[in-house]
Computed example of a mutant assay.
Amino acid sequence: MKVLFVKDYAEMSEKGYELIKEIIETKEEPVISMTTGGTPRGIFKLLVEDIHNGLDISHTTIMNLDEYIGPRDAAYTVRTFMYQNLYDLINVQPHNIFLIDGATEDIENEINRYKEILQLYARDIQILGLGTNGHIGANEPGTPFDSTMFLAEHTEATIQSTMKEYNIERNDTPTQMLTLGFTEILEAKKVVLLVSGKHKAKAVRDFLEGDITPACPASVLRNCENTIVIIDEEAASLLDKAKYL
């Protein structure tokens, strides 16, 4: 695992986007898997700007890490985020858009469908964010490190984070999510974890300096050579920086 320290959210977004752009420009049929929410918004803005300036994504496949269980057009869904922050803002669309269906009535079938897509389209890069309790995707604390795509129950910390991110009431907030498990996440050729903000500082310390344990889901990344972690100053504020020089 490689750790990069950056100044702030803007630089974190730039460094993360550079990795995505390089893959789009150098691979014949690049496959990008994104996360959503506050962490990658800066990356999406940079991607949209570059597409308007001529970046060709017509040969690119874009998929996603997870999806909330709920109506497809709800404010909080990954589908809504992807269209509002990317697909509705560009004239040239990716070659393939693969989204998980969180409105399905057949969870098992949807998991099998998306697993088949993952097998057909090997991901060049998987973008991740870090939850305040150390979760990645919806792999909450306690999720076994050999998890495969599954229906996850949100912890209260994640529910509160979703409420804040999408400005919705508790009763309107989803409590379940279809998510790639650690097995699928780590199958990507490159895994990039982005972390910004003082509210993530404890999670970063637990992730990097605590035990490697399912109690801190992100700690599974520490033994992965294909992982890059990009952390800004506020998120890194509780770390012993000398360990990383």
Rank of each mutant, 00 (worst) to 15 (best):
M1S: 07
K7M: 02
D8G: 08
Y9H: 11
M12L: 15
S13N: 01
G16N: 04
L19Q: 14
K21C: 05
I23G: 04
E25C: 09
E29D: 13
P30L: 09
I32N: 08
M34S: 10
T35G: 03
G38P: 05
T39G: 06
F44C: 05
F44G: 01
F44L: 08
L46A: 07
V48I: 10
N53A: 14
G54H: 10
D56P: 04
S58G: 11
S58H: 08
I62D: 02
I69Q: 00
Y76T: 13
V78Y: 15
F81V: 06
F81S: 04
Q84S: 13
L86W: 10
L86A: 10
L89F: 09
Q93G: 12
P94T: 09
H95E: 15
G102M: 02
G102E: 03
T104V: 00
E105Y: 07
D106E: 12
R113P: 03
Y114T: 12
Q119K: 15
Q119W: 07
R123F: 13
D124M: 06
L130A: 03
T132W: 00
G137A: 09
G142Y: 01
G142K: 01
A152K: 01
A152S: 13
H154K: 10
H154L: 15
T155E: 12
K164M: 13
E165A: 14
E165L: 00
I168R: 11
T175W: 07
M177K: 07
L180M: 15
G181T: 07
L186S: 08
L186V: 00
E187L: 11
K189P: 02
K198S: 14
H199A: 03
R205S: 12
L208Q: 03
A215V: 08
P217F: 05
I228A: 02
I231V: 15
I231Q: 03
D232R: 04
E234S: 08
A236L: 06
L238W: 03
K241R: 14
A242C: 00
L245I: 11
